[in-house]
Design a protein around this nucleic acid. Sequence first.
RNA 1: CGGGGAGUAGCGCAGCCCGGUUAGCGCGCAGCGUUCGGGACGCUGAGGUCGGAGGUUCGAAUCCUCUCUCCCCGACCA
Length: 578
Amino acid sequence: MRMAHLFGRTLRDAPGDVELPSHQLMLRAGMMRPLGAGIYSLLPLGFRVVTKVEQVIREELNAIGGQEMLMPVVHPADVWKESGRYQDVGPEMTRFKDRGERDMVLAMTHEEVVTDLARQEINSYRQLPMLVYHIQTKWRDEPRSRGGLIRVREFTMKDSYSLDLDEAGLDVQYQNHWRAYERIFRRCGLRFVVVGADTGMMGGTASHEFMALSDYGEDIVLLCDACGYADNREVATFQRQGAVAEDLLPVEEVETPNATTIKALADFLGVPLARTAKAVFFKGDSGRFVFVVIRGDLEVNETKLRKAAGEGGLTAATAEEIRAIGAEPGYGSPVGTRDAFVVADESVRDSPNLVAGANRPGWHLRNVNLGRDYAADVVADIAAAEAGFPCPRCGAALRAERAIEVGNIFKLGSRYSAKFGATYLDAEGQSHPILMGSYGIGSGRVTATVVEQHHDEKGIAWPASIAPYHVSLLSLAAADDDEPVAAADRLYADLTAAGVEVLYDDRAERPGVKFNDADLIGNPVRVSVSARTLAKGEAEIKPRTATQAVFVPLAEVVPTVQRLLAELMAPLGGDPPA
RNA sequence: CGGGGAGUAGCGCAGCCCGGUUAGCGCGCAGCGUUCGGGACGCUGAGGUCGGAGGUUCGAAUCCUCUCUCCCCGACCA
């Protein structure tokens, strides 16, 4: 591609309000442009990268037996009503009516459609297992998109769906995806970990997320370097110290002016946070008031709490709602409150004689004990794991890292097939629901995440496997000097003929501009010819991440580039260019 | 949805508080000339409904009201 006619120019400055490195760099490099909040056009350079990522995905999915297909992006609402998600999913699903006043939706995902297809196409055990996938646009009207391609409303996702006879078959496909995803992300040059995850509203029985470590990640993962334990913070657990044996002391009131936070309370009384119980108040989606009691040194994990309380969603309770159940904001405790569903963390069961609120301003109670002074409707693990907490498996200190979710795998089981009547007949003529799995990778998010992990102050440094082009070819010449241009033209032809993808900067720009743009765009190898190199019959070759360039005779450029590319590709596990 | 910030030329910004000819600067863009290995220089030039609507005023980018959009934090999130 000749850069003079490339659609999409580079920018010296990113828009001032853009902060994420990948967002800035992909805008500056001319790879994408915003159309609206969370809606982007991919320009040719960016589209080439995403296409390559998708090709990697395609190859690895095909390798585990995937059959590529294509399902629609506009769905009649009927299938969503059939699964129940038409009612369950909130405003992030866009609903509209067609001209015939029929309810329609924009696809957020494709479980419904694939299950509808499965019940039409599958009826015998002889047909299973199967694996189908597509790479298709999704629309999710997120309350807040952010960070360029990391979190958008319209995006392209590879979603695959496994169809199996039984749990054993589902396990195999789940493991196949696990391995395929590891290969995909390795080939894309991503550093990642696999963590256990919440199944969320996908339901199902198991879920893992592929998390690329990044300071700008929206998720937090907890990792154990000693034994390899890894979980999303939403589900991460930690070793508890067990019940403390201590005689239960009588409750006594203590005046605690202005001690409305747990920290202020502990400081005022001179007791450690772990000797206090804090109350946290939520209103559940069901309308119940959820009263949480947890030891003062721990934080509530809302995902765990939602499960323990059996609530689909939770919002913080208002001061009026708190007073309505007989509690007092800042001085709340479950002692003497009413009309609340009390969820206690295991920590308050195991730690006797805690300081808790007295439900009147300026006063707390010493020696409050679960069971004696108040009852809990549920006692469960609802505490958030933190860095430094003991690993649930081996006890070593956990490490916490921010991460971007680039892929996930779910066991759906019969959640959809049962509702849709997607069944097969076994060898005895018995009907069984097909067991399903669902597996997703966002190709645009993968692309942006690669940039997060592969850039420097100059620009992007693409892994060779997914770079827009293999080579940036620069002709460095004065306007009246035809020699370097002619030499670069020949190299462009030779490299292209050898199967190397070349972005040829043939613009009438000064050397500095071309160097800077080449660094910004980030193709893995740069080849330059100028009067200076031609004086010795050479070209300059420099990998994007190398500090030193090499000079080779013009005739050696093609083989040298091919060798360099092969070296750059090798650790990525992909094939070098032909 | 809550909190914060911002909409002035393709991009980055100033001007606004304290209203007053023709709305500025840098980059980019076009032309000419000089330059030519890490974002050159000179001259000339094109490019603007100052996000939109309404209002106040002799006069509004500037003041008031409403509204739209974008960004950041939070809530949310398969």
